[in-house]
Computed example of a mutant assay.
Amino acid sequence: MNEHEWQEVIGTIGMFVLITAVIVTVIWQFAISWRAKAQLAREAEYKKIAETAAASQQDIGRQLAEINDRLSALRERTDAIELVLKVVE
């Protein structure tokens, strides 16, 4: 092989390495972008779930307050019935 052929071989190998590096970099950046989008989508889903859970907790809190009021009213009526029964005895 003469000097000119070696230069062509080295140039070909250099171009192959350069193209491979560019392709790997592009794929790597695409993967990073894809993971970031997936993470944003997961975070949005978690936020939606958290908002739903908070709304459910508020609803349950209201229901418990209503049940507590009804129980208090029932307790007052029961106490009144007991008083009437004691008076009758």
Score class of each variant (00 low, 15 high):
Met1Arg: 09
Asn2Arg: 04
Glu3Asp: 13
Glu3Gly: 02
His4Thr: 14
Trp6Tyr: 08
Trp6His: 08
Trp6Phe: 15
Gln7Tyr: 05
Val9Arg: 13
Val9Asn: 02
Ile10Gly: 01
Ile10Pro: 00
Gly11Lys: 09
Gly11Val: 01
Gly11Trp: 01
Met15Gln: 14
Phe16Lys: 04
Leu18Gly: 08
Leu18Glu: 12
Leu18Thr: 08
Ile23Cys: 09
Val24Tyr: 10
Val26Ala: 09
Trp28Gln: 04
Trp28Ser: 13
Ala31Gly: 10
Ala31His: 07
Ser33Asp: 13
Ser33Asn: 13
Ala38Thr: 04
Ala38Lys: 15
Ala38Asp: 09
Leu40Glu: 14
Glu45Leu: 07
Tyr46Ile: 06
Lys48Thr: 03
Lys48Trp: 02
Ile49Cys: 01
Ala50Gly: 04
Ala50Asn: 10
Thr52Asn: 05
Ala54Pro: 00
Ala54Ile: 03
Ala54Thr: 06
Ala55Ser: 10
Ala55Glu: 10
Ser56His: 06
Ser56Tyr: 06
Ser56Ile: 01
Gln58Pro: 01
Gln63Trp: 02
Leu64Lys: 11
Ala65Asn: 07
Ala65Glu: 15
Ala65Arg: 10
Ala65Tyr: 05
Glu66Cys: 01
Ile67Ser: 08
Asp69Lys: 14
Arg70Phe: 04
Leu71Met: 13
Leu71Asn: 12
Leu71Phe: 05
Ser72Lys: 05
Ala73Gln: 13
Leu74Ile: 11
Arg75Asp: 10
Glu76Gln: 11
Ile81Arg: 15
Ile81Thr: 07
Ile81Ala: 13
Glu82Gln: 09
Leu83Ala: 15
Leu83Arg: 10
Lys86Asn: 09
Lys86Arg: 12
Glu89Leu: 13
